[in-house]
Structure formats: structure tokens, C-alpha cells
Amino acid sequence: MKKDYEDIPGTIVFDADRGREGYQLNQFCISLRLQKNRDEFNADEEAYLDRYRMTPEQRQAVRDRDWNGLLALGGNIYYTSKLAANDGINFQNLAGLMTGMGVEAYREMMLNGGRPPEGNRYQYEWDGKGEG
């Protein structure tokens, strides 16, 4: 089925298909909401990850803290942000990492009013700019 939101550039819409693919990954991430689980994860990441039936790609993206990769593999930002919080990364700094701009340049962009909609609505506007 064609999805009318798939031509939005730089955006992964967390829909039911992604929810299905990312279920184990997202359940792992939300478990880190609790201190007891964070302690166990930080003591032995591999042993903790054994509890969740993630794909090898998802598991590697967790190891690599590949924030965009996690989203492409079915993660949702409200879940992956729990892994980021465990690592001491807040929402704004996580966004800075995902955009590829880096934390400082991203913060500066937000202070100047954020990313404008102009040129950022459709994938064709990003094609040829080396993005997307």
C-alpha cells in the first residue's frame, strides 16, 4: 500500500509496520526507564541484550549507538531516547546527532527559529543536495 507520508525528507514515520519490526528493540529501550534495569544493562550490555529477541542488525545498532539506524530498523524516538538518556544524552543533543549537524550547530539553529519548512517538505527538494 502506498503511504502518503513517505515523500517527506529526513523523516521516518513510526507506523504499524515499523511497530511490528521494532517491537523487541523498543521493549528493550523502554526497560531502561527503570534504574534497576539501567544498572544491569550498564554492568553487562551483552547479557542484558540476550533477553530481547532483536535482529542482529538491531543489536549491532544498539552496540554502535547508531541513532538513525535504530529508527530505520523499527525504533521509535520516544523509545530510543531512553537508551540515549542512559548514556547521558538529552533530547536536544540526540537531535543534534541525528541531523548530522552536531550538538552546537543544532542548538544554534533552534535559537535562530529552527529548521524552516521551505525546502524541507518533499524528498525531491533534498535530492541532489546530497541529503536524504
Binding site: S81, A95, T99, R115
Partner: peptide, 17 residues
């Protein structure tokens, strides 16, 4: 109101909208 927290377009703000 307008905000995008995720992926490469994060930071989108649309004051007019």
C-alpha cells in the same frame, strides 16, 4: 506545536503554520 524530534529533519519549526 510544530516540532520534529527524530531523524535528519529534526528541528523543523513552522511558525506560520
Amino acid at each position: 506545536m510544530s516540532h520534529q524530534l527524530q531523524y535528519k529533519r529534526a528541528g523543523l519549526i513552522n511558525r506560520e503554520w
